[in-house]
Amino acid sequence: MSERTNGEAMIVAEDVEKWFAGFQALRGVSTTVRRGEVVVIVGPSGSGKSTFIRTINRLERHDKGRIVVDGIELTDDIRNIERIRSEIGIVFQSFNLFPHLRVVENLTLAPRNVRRWPRAKAEEKARQLLERVGIPEQARKYPSQLSGGQQQRVAIARALVMEPKIMLFDEPTSALDPEMIKEVLDVMKELATSGITMVVITHEIGFAKEVADRVLFFEEGRVVEEGPPGEFFSNPREERTKQFLSQILV
């Protein structure tokens, strides 16, 4: 799987720290994600995984340390922030689709208003992506009329329509009923093989074993251990990793 990457660093995080009021959520996270790599992050709730990937596209502001995305440093400079955001797509646990717009309008909103694409071009791209995620017939429906799995696939398509170089996934299947998890994971697997850089927070170990290049274990705001999935799951080095894995692996 690591043939996908050409070694170029897409995301560089150095000693990233973040506080929420008195509580330190990130205690010096450092890692590098290379182009085409698929990185899976696991860890107990409250360990800072979600906070970390949200600092990458400035949904949270990091207090210390350095974050560089595709050569652009993430600072308080609006221009940098906007350039970085245009290269990153994010998929949320709760989908966050716009309920008052149809599916196709959800997809075309950003390209038409941020990139100023003409309507026809945006709709064509939307149609292609809906096919790619497997639900082209749902284009004119409203999100509330779709199942959870379909909604999340629309969310993935919406993120993809801006042609990002990096896709972030914040527990994309945690809010889904079990029978719908597979359809979303299938789409994500297809994305992984297509060469896009992905950072995925998930509890789906099967997915990690199949497509991840690297697995990171977060606990208490730090990366406790990382490694290729083969080693990580069968032979973890750290004691805490072993404890965590024993709790989630059946």
Binding site: H62, K64, R66, E73, T75, D76, D77, I78, N80
Partner: peptide, 19 residues
């Protein structure tokens, strides 16, 4: 509380300055 100081953005683009 500043991020690493080697690239301070120009003030007209700095989010905090704008605020």
């Amino acid at each position: 509380m500043a991020t690493a100081a080697h690239t301070r953005p120009p003030f007209w683009r700095d989010v905090r300055v704008l605020r």
